[in-house]
Amino acid sequence: IEEVKKIVSEIQSKQLTRITINGNTYQVNSPEELVEYVRKVFS
């Protein structure tokens, strides 16, 4: 979970619009959307 928080804060600070998780690239339009992807991947 700490690793996830680190990734999320990194993305928020860079305002990235794409994230790659487990080889899948997602278009991310908002931090909320990012959190949803993270929940799916780590749930």
Results as ranks from 00 to 15, higher is better:
residue 1 I to Y: 13
residue 10 E to Q: 08
residue 42 F to N: 00
residue 31 P to Q: 02
residue 37 Y to G: 01
residue 4 V to T: 04
residue 22 N to C: 14
residue 14 K to R: 10
residue 11 I to D: 01
residue 34 L to C: 05
residue 43 S to E: 12
residue 5 K to V: 11
residue 15 Q to F: 08
residue 33 E to F: 04
residue 24 N to Q: 13
residue 23 G to W: 11
residue 5 K to Y: 13
residue 1 I to E: 14
residue 27 Q to P: 01
residue 42 F to S: 02
residue 16 L to D: 00
residue 4 V to K: 03
residue 13 S to N: 10
residue 31 P to V: 13
residue 36 E to I: 06
residue 40 K to H: 10
residue 25 T to E: 08
residue 32 E to P: 03
residue 5 K to F: 13
residue 40 K to I: 10
residue 43 S to W: 11
residue 15 Q to P: 03
residue 8 V to Q: 03
residue 17 T to P: 02
residue 24 N to S: 10
residue 43 S to N: 11
residue 12 Q to M: 15
residue 9 S to N: 12
residue 14 K to C: 13
residue 11 I to L: 03
residue 38 V to R: 00
residue 14 K to V: 04
residue 31 P to T: 08
residue 31 P to W: 15
residue 17 T to A: 04
residue 25 T to G: 02
residue 38 V to W: 04
residue 5 K to T: 12
residue 36 E to D: 10
residue 2 E to V: 11
residue 23 G to C: 08
residue 38 V to T: 01
residue 9 S to E: 14
residue 21 I to D: 00
residue 16 L to I: 04
residue 29 N to L: 14
residue 1 I to M: 12
residue 21 I to G: 00
residue 23 G to D: 09
residue 27 Q to H: 08
residue 29 N to Y: 11
residue 10 E to M: 13
residue 27 Q to R: 07
residue 17 T to I: 11
residue 34 L to A: 02
residue 29 N to Q: 09
residue 7 I to N: 02
residue 25 T to R: 04
residue 22 N to I: 04
residue 24 N to V: 15
residue 19 I to C: 05
residue 28 V to Q: 15
residue 13 S to W: 08
residue 25 T to I: 10
residue 13 S to L: 12
residue 4 V to Y: 15
residue 42 F to P: 00
residue 40 K to N: 09
residue 3 E to A: 13
residue 42 F to I: 04
residue 11 I to W: 03
residue 39 R to T: 10
residue 32 E to D: 09
residue 11 I to M: 03
residue 5 K to N: 14
residue 29 N to R: 08
residue 14 K to D: 02
residue 16 L to Y: 04
residue 18 R to E: 09
residue 42 F to L: 11
residue 21 I to R: 01
residue 40 K to A: 10
residue 13 S to R: 12
residue 18 R to Q: 10
residue 21 I to M: 03
residue 6 K to L: 10
residue 1 I to S: 13
residue 43 S to Y: 12
residue 14 K to W: 12
residue 20 T to D: 03
residue 28 V to H: 15
residue 28 V to R: 15
residue 10 E to T: 07
residue 29 N to E: 10
residue 30 S to H: 05
residue 27 Q to W: 09
residue 33 E to S: 03
residue 40 K to G: 06
residue 40 K to L: 12
residue 21 I to K: 01
residue 32 E to A: 11
residue 24 N to M: 14
residue 21 I to H: 02
residue 7 I to P: 01
residue 39 R to Q: 10
residue 26 Y to W: 14
residue 41 V to R: 04
residue 15 Q to N: 09
residue 4 V to G: 03
residue 35 V to W: 08
residue 31 P to R: 01
residue 35 V to F: 06
residue 3 E to K: 11
residue 16 L to Q: 03
residue 11 I to S: 01
residue 42 F to V: 02
residue 31 P to G: 01
residue 28 V to W: 11
residue 39 R to F: 11
residue 19 I to K: 01
residue 40 K to V: 05
residue 1 I to R: 10
residue 18 R to M: 12
residue 38 V to L: 10
residue 12 Q to T: 10
residue 31 P to E: 02
residue 38 V to G: 02
residue 38 V to N: 00
residue 16 L to P: 02
residue 41 V to F: 14
residue 22 N to T: 02
residue 22 N to D: 08
residue 16 L to M: 06
residue 25 T to S: 09
residue 17 T to V: 09
residue 34 L to T: 00
residue 11 I to E: 01
residue 27 Q to N: 08
residue 30 S to C: 06
residue 36 E to P: 00
residue 1 I to P: 12
residue 29 N to V: 06
residue 1 I to W: 14
residue 29 N to T: 08
residue 9 S to H: 13
residue 4 V to M: 15
residue 22 N to H: 09
residue 6 K to A: 11
residue 15 Q to Y: 06
residue 43 S to D: 10
residue 38 V to D: 00
residue 39 R to Y: 13
residue 27 Q to L: 08
residue 27 Q to V: 14
residue 12 Q to I: 15
residue 33 E to N: 05
residue 42 F to R: 01
residue 42 F to G: 00
residue 23 G to N: 05
residue 34 L to W: 04
residue 37 Y to T: 11
residue 14 K to M: 12
residue 10 E to L: 13
residue 13 S to T: 11
residue 19 I to V: 07
residue 1 I to A: 13
residue 4 V to L: 15
residue 28 V to M: 15
residue 42 F to T: 01
residue 36 E to W: 08
residue 10 E to W: 13
residue 20 T to G: 01
residue 5 K to G: 11
residue 36 E to G: 04
residue 40 K to E: 08
residue 32 E to W: 09
residue 4 V to Q: 07
residue 16 L to G: 07
residue 8 V to P: 02
residue 15 Q to W: 07
residue 36 E to S: 06
residue 15 Q to S: 10
residue 43 S to G: 13
residue 25 T to K: 04
residue 12 Q to W: 14
residue 32 E to T: 06
residue 20 T to K: 05
residue 8 V to L: 13
residue 37 Y to E: 06
residue 23 G to H: 04
residue 34 L to K: 00
residue 9 S to R: 13
residue 5 K to R: 12
residue 17 T to W: 06
residue 8 V to D: 01
residue 7 I to L: 13
residue 14 K to P: 04
residue 13 S to Q: 12
residue 39 R to L: 15
residue 10 E to H: 09
residue 12 Q to V: 13
residue 8 V to M: 09
residue 37 Y to S: 04
residue 26 Y to M: 07
residue 23 G to M: 03
residue 26 Y to P: 00
residue 15 Q to I: 06
residue 18 R to G: 04
residue 32 E to S: 07
residue 2 E to M: 11
residue 28 V to I: 07
residue 8 V to S: 01
residue 32 E to G: 06
residue 1 I to D: 13
residue 14 K to E: 04
residue 14 K to G: 08
residue 17 T to L: 08
residue 29 N to K: 08
residue 35 V to R: 02
residue 12 Q to D: 03
residue 31 P to C: 10
residue 42 F to W: 05
residue 34 L to P: 00
residue 12 Q to H: 11
residue 14 K to I: 04
residue 17 T to N: 05
residue 15 Q to A: 10
residue 32 E to V: 04
residue 8 V to H: 02
residue 21 I to P: 00
residue 18 R to N: 06
residue 12 Q to A: 06
residue 35 V to Y: 04
residue 9 S to F: 14
residue 30 S to Q: 03
residue 35 V to L: 09
residue 33 E to C: 09
residue 10 E to Y: 13
residue 43 S to P: 04
residue 37 Y to N: 02
residue 43 S to A: 13
residue 6 K to T: 07
residue 30 S to F: 06
residue 28 V to K: 15
residue 37 Y to D: 00
residue 22 N to L: 08
residue 26 Y to A: 03
residue 14 K to F: 05
residue 41 V to Q: 06
residue 22 N to G: 09
residue 27 Q to D: 08
residue 7 I to F: 07
residue 7 I to M: 08
residue 30 S to T: 12
residue 30 S to V: 05
residue 12 Q to G: 04
residue 41 V to G: 03
